[in-house]
Computed example of a mutant assay.
Amino acid sequence: MAYRDQAFPDRALHLHAARPVGWSPAMPVVFVHHGVRRNGRDYRDYWLAHVDAGGFLAIAIEFPDDSFPEYLWYHFGNLRTKDGAANPPEAWTFGIGPRLFQALRDQGITTAPRHGLFGHSAGGQYVHRMLSLGYREHVAVAVAANAGTYAMPDLGIAWPWGLGALGLAQADLPPLLGFPLTILAGTEDTGTTGAHFPKGPNSMRQGPHRYGRAHAYVRTGRQAAEALGMTLAWELIDVPGVGHDGARMSDAAAPLIAERLRR
Rank of each mutant, 00 (worst) to 15 (best):
G55E: 11
W161F: 15
T81I: 03
G167E: 14
G156S: 12
L166V: 03
E90W: 03
R222C: 03
T110W: 14
N39V: 00
A233F: 01
S24N: 01
P175N: 07
R213V: 02
S250F: 02
Y3V: 04
A60L: 04
G246S: 04
P25L: 00
T81K: 12
A247R: 15
A103Q: 15
V36W: 08
T187R: 06
H128Y: 05
L48H: 13
L133Q: 06
V218D: 09
E90S: 13
P20H: 06
T93D: 05
W92N: 10
H209K: 03
T231H: 09
S203C: 06
Q206S: 05
W47L: 02
T220Y: 07
I61N: 05
F31G: 00
H196I: 13
D189S: 03
F197C: 03
A158C: 05
G22M: 06
F68I: 11
H75G: 07
D154A: 02
Y150E: 02
H75Q: 09
T193S: 14
A147K: 05
R205E: 14
P208H: 11
T193E: 14
G164K: 02
F94G: 02
A165D: 15
L104Y: 01
L133F: 10
M230D: 13
H196Q: 13
P69E: 09
T193N: 11
H33N: 15
G167H: 12
Q125R: 06
G22C: 07
G119F: 12
P208E: 15
A53E: 15
P175F: 01
K199R: 12
M130Q: 15
M152K: 01
D238Y: 07
